[in-house]
Write a protein that binds this DNA or RNA. Structure first.
Length: 241
DNA sequence: TCATTAAATTGTT
DNA sequence: AACAATTTAATGA
């Protein structure tokens, strides 16, 4: 399948609604807030569904939201406005992103595209800044987030340079199972082999082979429409035989 | 709730 | 890229 054509950038406001209690439950940093802070945030939070191929934010657009993935899978591509240098990162449930640009009230530096139909939450820039000024735990969360993601991007560049497909799949998967960055993933990541191939830059067939190799080694278990991690450490350190 | 059908995903060549 | 096999989702009685 060819990837769906991107629709022109998206107003997340459209078709947005208030988050359900269940969805709030899955937002990791909410629990760290004081009741009054929490109230204001919940009031401002909006969730919206984005279709496969839709762009959430585009390089150069002014940052208006801090985004989080409730459900689904996004692709974050870090290409310069001029073009080539690319790194891809998957954005599974539980991931929040855009803080770097929202912090400085700049423009987005990434393209964020939905790999499949996804549920996304957005917190307005103003509220984001208000929180930074009021909650120390929130500041900690954001700092840790920035730090971890930096590590992710450095790792992603290394993955790009590696030639062995099995290793690339293993490392990319390990990154998606990052417990701090993507707490919503748990031990079962909902991702099709097609989507994984699109992220890693391999054909679906090759991904299928790689996954079965990884399963053979006891790192993962292949499930319909997803992958379950059995041994995250082994996945990180996977080497071809 | 169950049976049937369509759609999505996987396994294989 | 194509095809068959398998699994899930949707439909309607």
């Amino acid at each position: 399948m060819t990837f769906p054509v991107a629709s022109p950038a998206l107003p997340l406001l459209k078709r947005a609604r208030a988050p359900t209690p269940d969805e709030l439950q899955g937002i990791p940093w909410l629990a760290a807030l004081q009741p009054d802070e929490r109230e204001r945030v919940v009031d401002d939070l909006r969730v919206a569904q984005v279709g496969a191929g839709e762009l959430l934010c585009r390089v150069g657009r002014p940052a208006t939201f801090w985004f989080g993935v409730i459900d689904g899978l996004l692709k974050m591509s870090n290409d310069t406005a001029l073009g080539v240098p690319i790194t891809f990162t998957g954005m599974p449930p539980g991931g929040w992103f855009g803080e770097g640009t929202v912090l400085k009230r700049e423009v987005y530096r990434y393209n964020i595209q939905a790999l499949r139909k996804s549920l996304v939450a957005g917190l307005g820039v103003e509220t984001f800044h208000w929180l930074l000024g009021h909650s120390i735990p929130f500041n900690r969360f954001v700092m840790q987030q920035l730090n971890e993601r930096l590590g992710q991007f450095i790792g992603a560049r290394e993955i790009d340079r590696m030639s062995d497909p099995d290793v690339r799949v293993a490392r990319s998967l390990a990154a998606l199972f990052h417990p701090t960055l993507y707490p919503g993933v748990g031990s079962l990541l909902r991702i099709t082999q097609q989507e994984l191939g699109y992220l890693v830059g391999l054909s679906r067939q090759r991904v299928n082979l790689a996954l079965r190799n990884l399963q053979e080694r006891g790192c993962i278990r292949i499930e319909y429409g997803g992958v379950r991690v059995l041994d995250l450490q082994a996945l990180r350190e996977y080497l071809p035989q």
